[in-house]
Design a protein around this nucleic acid. Structure first.
Length: 382
DNA sequence: AATACGGGGAC
DNA sequence: GTCCCAGTATT
């Protein structure tokens, strides 16, 4: 069998297999380019099972490009809460607004236009054009790299751009005439269901007999991928600042800046700590450090009351070890008991807001703060 | 080419 | 604990 015959065998077998084994996924029920687009953004670095409920809720809340374009950003972030990589949500809304303004609300169908949209890179460009418009534009993700590296025995580091480009060229040759969308999904579906990262199910694979990786006994060691750097540790101290007097039952949250980590998400006030929480472990040293740092940073005069908990949270590049104290504001300051509280309200930094056991849920928090606040409210019997 | 950017599920 | 997942933007 020559190379061309091998490619034809691969494409035809894979396509046939897909038409039988394709999963019934929410975004596969219609050929709505907006649905495809939303699902592809959500699926970046995120598993299908995680995305399903988010996708359903998101489409219910923002059924059309128009609806998403006109929504407040806060609501979009809230709908994304817990999914991670929140710039995806903000870029998606920004791009949807662009489609509304420049393309009359219709997702464009050329490579140039689609790939120019915010948050849409080479993979998502191919996914939208092939799945929504059945155009033969390659969509090479982790699944596709794994499948191709095994079947065609490609032993290049898949982290390298040059490898992804080689895979894209390969997929372009492999597209079966008139079936671009199904073929794109077939490649990913095989990677998700059969050609899995560990213990691939080769015996049920439709192209096993000509898989070069398996014939060489290398199916478990492919694809080749350089190890990622471990996240750097970062110790932090957080304050659950509860109100007293007429602010009883409330606590203080703040919104993160426009850019960087967890941009525009809400959180409890927290600061970098010289010592990890396990060294502080609820002692006065941590409370003192927190009080001093938050005074310097936000002008808040804290009165730490007691230790709440330790919280660990790992991002891809940072590991937070966070010690959390329950605090109040020193008397005479906003939220504290005392006559001056009304007029002193202005001295709260602009990005700080009081919430209570119900209203806090309207704000979008990263997971680690959802855990901390939930624990606090349980403990306080709210 | 390297790094920033979340979170969770499978082993 | 480790891996890595339907990646993109920025430097």
């Amino acid at each position: 069998m020559n190379a061309v015959e091998n490619q034809q065998f691969f494409s035809r077998s894979l396509l046939e297999w897909y038409l039988v084994h394709r999963r019934d996924l929410p975004w596969r029920r219609h050929r709505n380019p907006y649905y495809i687009w939303v699902s592809e953004i959500m699926l970046q670095q995120t598993r299908v099972e995680t995305v399903k409920p988010y996708f359903q809720r998101f489409i219910e809340k923002f059924p059309t490009i128009e609806a998403l374009a006109d929504a407040p950003e806060d609501e979009v972030l809230k709908a994304w809460e817990g999914l991670g990589y929140y710039s995806r949500a903000r870029n998606l809304q920004s791009a949807v607004r662009e489609v509304k303004e420049s393309y009359g609300g219709v997702v464009p169908d050329t490579k140039e236009e689609v790939s120019a949209l915010k948050g849409v890179g080479p993979y998502t460009t191919g996914a939208i054009l092939s799945i929504a418009y059945n155009k033969p534009v390659p969509a090479v993700d982790g699944n596709v790299m794994r499948v191709l590296s095994r079947y065609f025995l490609i032993e290049e580091d898949i982290m390298k751009v040059s490898t992804r480009v080689r895979m894209e060229n390969l997929v372009s040759e492999l597209f079966p005439e008139g079936h671009a969308g199904d073929f794109t999904q077939a490649l990913m579906e095989l990677g998700a269901l059969v050609c899995t990262p560990k213990s691939p199910h080769c015996l049920t694979c439709p192209v096993m007999e000509h898989c070069a990786g398996r014939l060489e006994g290398k199916e478990e060691s492919l694809p080749i991928k350089k190890k990622a750097k471990p996240p750097r540790p970062e110790a932090r101290l957080a304050a659950l600042i509860r109100g007293s007097g007429e602010r009883a039952g409330q606590f203080l949250i703040r919104q993160r800046p426009e850019t960087g980590l967890l941009a525009r998400m809400w959180e409890l006030p927290h600061v970098l700590s010289p010592e990890p929480a396990y060294a502080v472990s609820g002692g006065g040293a941590g409370a003192d450090a927190l009080e001093a740092a938050l005074a310097a940073e936000a002008g808040l005069r804290l009165q730490p009351l007691h230790w709440l908990m330790e919280a660990e949270h790992t991002f891809s590049h940072i590991h937070w070890n966070m010690g959390v104290y329950v605090c109040e504001l020193a008397p005479g300051l906003p939220g504290a008991a005392g006559a001056a509280s009304r007029s002193a309200e202005r001295s709260l930094p602009a990005d700080y807001v009081w919430v209570d056991a119900h209203t806090w849920r309207e704000y979008a928090f990263p997971n680690v703060f959802l855990r901390i606040i939930s624990r606090y409210l349980e403990d306080s019997g709210a």
